[in-house]
Amino acid sequence: MEKIAFLGLGRMGLPMARRLKDVGHELRVWNRTPGRAEDLDATDDPVEAVRGAGVVVTMLADRVALAEVAGRIAGELTPGTLWVDMSSVGPEAVAELAGQLPSGVGLVDAPVLGSVGPAASGGLTVLAGGAAVDVERARPVLAALGTVVPCGGPGSGAALKVVVISAIVGGVAVVGEALAVADAYGLPAELTAGVLGSGPLAGLLARATSIEADFPVRLAAKDVALADGGRVLAAVAEGLNSRPELADRDLARYVDALRAEVVAAAR
């Protein structure tokens, strides 16, 4: 097992780093905000974290954070180092990162599908893009975190993540509005859920009404915006961004807010 530098200990990054430690990987961690990893070998300097590491894993909030970290550490990486970016930043940001890396440093884009629970248990789906040799080298690390899905060349993992998360978030928003329409008609919630849950929308209904998931509205809006899609996705992103009070709440709470508006209007 190669020494790992893990940079970014947010909602997903921290349980992922702990998971890698639990399965036996040696790692040094860094987070922009200190004090989140007292049980891990942490440093307050990202350059110190990557020194001597064979694999650098980043799990950062957005492309701005990724570019900032890359600006601090890219020049310190030596040939043979492999950078595995697991952030949800889109293929353009991955291409920008590749352009910053010194010759001989490999890059795999490997964003994930799943929430905090699967991150801690190794139950994520990992969408891996990059040169085949780099993806295979990264596989022992990625497989500890979940099921690895090779997607193709550089940027393909990041691209597929944008596609899938746009469908999920957009679908949850549509199901949420459908539930609000049902409330407006006065339909029993159990009846509506029973019919929706018996067909192809079952998974989206479960996500729209979840009380266990932890995917903040602000990150859902950011991920949908990466698609730069048409009217539907643009409307979904606008709706999510219109709820700043829900920014750090799970996506399902956005659905709750839509339904609460209908109830309040009916009074």
Rank of each mutant, 00 (worst) to 15 (best):
A234H: 14
V262F: 04
G229S: 11
L201I: 11
L204V: 01
D248A: 13
G239R: 12
A264H: 01
A221R: 02
V217M: 11
Y254R: 01
L205T: 08
V217L: 14
F215Y: 12
L196M: 12
A252Q: 02
V255E: 00
R207F: 14
A237G: 09
L240K: 04
E245M: 03
K222L: 15
V224D: 10
R218Q: 14
P244A: 02
P200M: 13
V224A: 08
V224C: 05
A237H: 00
E245G: 15
V232K: 01
R207T: 09
L204C: 09
A225C: 07
N241T: 07
T209D: 11
R243G: 01
D256L: 02
A234I: 03
N241S: 11
F215E: 14
D228H: 14
G230C: 05
L219Y: 06
A202K: 14
A206K: 11
N241W: 02
L219I: 05
L233G: 02
D250G: 00
G230H: 10
L201P: 07
A213W: 05
L226Q: 09
A220D: 03
R249H: 15
R231V: 14
D256C: 08
R207C: 10
D256V: 05
V262P: 03
L251D: 03
D228C: 06
F215R: 10
A202P: 06
D248R: 10
D250V: 05
L233C: 01
S210H: 03
A257E: 15
I211Q: 13
V236Q: 14
E245P: 07
L258K: 02
A260E: 14
G229F: 06
A264F: 09
L233V: 03
L196A: 08
A235G: 15
A237D: 00
R249N: 08
A234R: 12
L258I: 02
A260Q: 09
A225Q: 12
D228S: 12
A227E: 00
S242N: 07
G197P: 11
I211N: 13
L196R: 06
G203R: 07
G194A: 12
E212L: 15
D256S: 10
S210L: 06
G239F: 07
E245F: 01
S210K: 01
S242G: 14
E245S: 12
E238A: 15
S198W: 07
A264Q: 11
V263D: 05
V232F: 07
R207A: 15
V232D: 05
A225D: 04
S198P: 02
T209M: 09
A235P: 08
G199S: 14
A234W: 10
A235T: 11
G230I: 10
A235I: 04
A257G: 10
V255G: 00
G199Y: 03
A260F: 04
A206I: 09
A252N: 02
A234V: 12
V232Q: 09
A234G: 15
L205V: 12
Y254K: 07
L196Y: 06
D250C: 04
G230Q: 13
L258T: 05
A227Q: 07
D228P: 03
G203I: 05
G203S: 06
P200T: 12
E245K: 08
A208W: 09
G194H: 12
D250I: 00
A247E: 00
V263I: 12
A213N: 11
A213S: 13
